[in-house]
Design a protein around this nucleic acid. Structure first.
Lengths: 129, 129
DNA sequence: TGATGTCAACGAAGAGTTTCGTATGTGAGG
DNA sequence: CCTCACATACGAAACTCTTCGTTGACATCA
């Protein structure tokens, strides 16, 4: 065992990861400014969270400059898939298919989006042959 | 404002809800026995959680018998849809479609399941006309 | 009646999350 | 050199989550 599974990010951590994915490598200041568009969180709160996330291995820190630069250690899609697998396990008896169908049922239909999903289905079916 | 939004169930709470959905109204003992198939959690732990869940409004309690009977206040699908909406909001920029597509991408294709999803898509598309 | 088993209630411990105040270091300008 | 702006680090408070030990009520039965 060399590497440990990254922990599921908490709500506040996920908000920060969202900024890092959107902006790329960022300083605490960058993240704080972006996150303060709506609602108020103190600068040191973001700093502390990023420090904790560094310990957890959710982000990596570049300390070569005075203002440390953080970036997400795992890609957005990888994290999203992890979260989905986690939710499928906890709330859908481990069935990702049930999850997908429930997600589809619970929303207004939109022709363009439905088509995009259909195309994705075609691709998947092609691959599985 | 008359009614409050139910809070997102935690991991342990979701495990208990799973039992209640599966078994229907149950006593603490029922839930505890079902949950101890794998792993060990004490009886009083389940009891305490169900008490807290009652306060939160996640379950309702029938106290007419000596052994109180609990049942989930919200249906399984409603809760699942709520969890999905929540995850879409927190991790997919509010886009349920992105969530669905990511969920589809992140798994092995299975012909029968893909067909079921396709049929669901057809139904949805029919409704949207 | 007294022992045994089952039940709810309570409280508290320990970990994790989120928040921020305060301390401290450091570079830039006056 | 002194001060200001800005940065990290640290610690602690408030809250939630999960766990379980203990207590006391109550029923059953020998």
């Amino acid at each position: 065992m060399t590497d440990r599974q990254p922990p599921r990010p908490t709500d506040a951590e996920l908000a920060i990861l969202g900024v890092l994915w959107e902006r790329g490598p960022s300083t605490v200041r960058d993240v704080h400014e972006r996150l303060n568009k709506d609602g108020a969180t103190g600068y040191t709160t973001i700093l502390k969270l990023l420090q904790i996330m560094t310990e957890k291995g959710l982000v990596v820190r570049d300390e070569s400059e005075r203002a440390h630069v953080y970036q997400s250690r795992y890609g957005e899609q990888k994290t999203q898939r992890q979260l989905l697998a986690d939710l499928a396990e906890r709330a859908f008896g481990g069935s990702a298919t049930k999850l997908v169908m429930q997600a589809l049922s619970g929303r207004k239909a939109n022709a363009a989006e439905l088509n995009a999903i259909r195309e994705l289905l075609d691709t998947l079916e092609g691959e599985s042959r």
